[in-house]
């Protein structure tokens, strides 16, 4: 018995060795110790873009190894400011407390906008009355005072039917929640609490597509993949202004406001001094225009990327937002601030 047991254990070890060998052959890369790894972490919203870049980058021969984690914008900055990651994905600018943490540990960083997202308000496709909403109407619906009070569509707009509203929104830990509340209610994290909240946007898609009275919000990519099940709401920034549907074009020309939001990567200055990190960032900006579009985000104009890259050449570190949120900002405004760094 014991002999057979030992034999099966041996097979196990051999199988492990075999599969490890297979794997290593496939990557055809030098041993792990010989190469450093580029560590990226942070926002789940920026993840698809950075993942696409990392995937394409590593398809090249001799490319450095890249890992991309998802721990949220805040969680990403925590690691970044401790010097545990080289690059941090962020769906909002760095906050004051995070700036302080980075400064304390001597972590200097380049702030690089990479793309825009159109935060999209969606309703059920059979809902034909709420096709356009003003920011004020959204505020009436979502502000904390609306909790338990604004429960029917005609309370938001008297022209709408006397039907119940069911609300769906982002979970309180997400950057999407922070941005939406900041842009619509006027204060980050200030929202009514009686809505179906989920960090998983697919749950929201399912909920809204199965509920005629539903309204909710999430990133444009989730709407773009589900246009057959959802209807996007055109947003009017002020009662007298024309309502604009979310689209890449409306983000670029700056008319989709205030729900266009910039997305960033933050690169540690110390890491950028490493040749493989510099090569990766170069690759990032060489390919971002195509890859951002492929991942259903809105790329910046080519001239904007040139301007952003100039930061790296000039070695200009720090943030242009001074710890403030970047709400209702167009691409031009972003670049204008950028130039002043």
């Amino acid at each position: 018995m014991s002999c057979k047991l030992r034999f099966s254990a041996l097979i196990g070890v051999l199988a492990l060795a075999g599969c490890q060998q297979d794997g290593t052959d496939q990557t055809a890369a030098p041993p792990a110790a010989a190469m450093s790894t580029i560590q990226i972490d942070g926002s789940s919203t920026v993840f698809p873009i950075t993942e696409a870049v990392a995937e394409e980058y590593q398809a090249q021969p001799g490319a450095a190894r890249v890992t991309v984690g998802v721990s949220g914008t805040g969680g990403g900055f925590k690691k970044f400011c401790r010097g545990e990651s080289d690059i941090s994905n962020a769906s909002r600018p760095i906050q004051k407390s995070e700036m302080a943490a980075c400064a304390e540990n001597g972590v200097e960083y380049f702030e690089l906008p990479v793309a825009f997202d159109a935060l999209t308000v969606v309703i059920h496709p059979d809902n034909d009355f709420a096709q356009a909403m003003s920011v004020d109407e959204l505020k009436t619906l979502w502000q904390p005072a609306a909790q338990g009070e604004v429960m029917r569509w005609n309370q938001v707009n008297p022209a709408w039917p006397d039907e119940p509203i069911s609300l769906y929104g982002a979970g309180a830990d997400s950057g999407t929640f922070d941005y939406f509340t900041e842009a619509v209610v006027g204060k980050a994290k200030s929202s009514r609490g009686d809505f179906t909240a989920s960090e998983d946007d697919n749950v929201l898609v399912q909920g809204i597509s199965g509920d005629v009275n539903a309204i909710g919000y999430f990133g444009y990519a989730y709407y773009a993949e589900n246009t057959d099940k959802l209807r996007a709401v055109a947003i009017a920034n002020g009662a007298d202004q024309e309502a604009v549907y979310p689209s890449p074009k409306a983000v670029i020309d700056g008319t989709y406001q205030p729900l266009s939001r910039p997305m960033f990567i933050y690169v540690s200055k110390a890491s950028f001094a490493r040749p493989e990190v510099k090569a990766f960032i170069d690759f990032y900006f060489d390919n971002i225009a195509v890859l951002a579009e492929e991942t259903k985000n809105v790329p910046l104009p080519a001239a904007a990327y040139d301007q952003v890259r100039q930061h790296l050449v000039d070695g200009r570190v720090g943030t242009v937002f001074k710890g403030e949120p970047a709400t209702a900002i167009t691409i031009e405004e972003l670049l204008a601030r950028d130039a002043g760094l």
Binding site: L16, A17, Q21, A29, F47, Q58, R65, G69, V70, K79
Partner: peptide
Amino acid sequence: IGAVTFIAFLPGSPVQ
């Protein structure tokens, strides 16, 4: 503990 989500390489081989 910080396991990554996207990774396109394997741990080094235990046998050399």
